[in-house]
């Protein structure tokens, strides 16, 4: 699961990274956002959305994306 800060909500972590990269000489960096990666093994993938809604993400402030390995 990829958990991202919702668009439009200020992301101070992303901003801090965005400011740090030019300090190391990396130019042209924009729109940096920092989220979370949650890896898990699960018996029933159908439960993943509910897991995200109820615990792994806070839908008020975060978006989630479920990525299943092929």
């Amino acid at each position: 699961m990829l958990i991202r800060p919702k668009a439009g909500i200020l992301d101070p972590q992303g901003l801090a990274v965005e400011r740090a990269l030019p300090a190391l000489g990396f130019g042209g960096v924009r729109e940096v956002h920092v989220g979370r990666l949650i890896e898990l093994e699960v018996a029933d993938v159908a439960q993943l959305p509910q897991m995200c809604e109820q615990l792994l993400a806070n839908p008020l402030i975060e978006d989630y994306e479920i990525i299943a390995p092929a």
Binding site: I9, L10, P12, Q13, L15, A16, N58, L60, I61
Partner: peptide, 10 residues
């Protein structure tokens, strides 16, 4: 209601 996010000052 609402949620508490990281301080804007980091």
């Amino acid at each position: 209601p609402g949620a508490l996010l990281r301080n804007v000052n980091g």
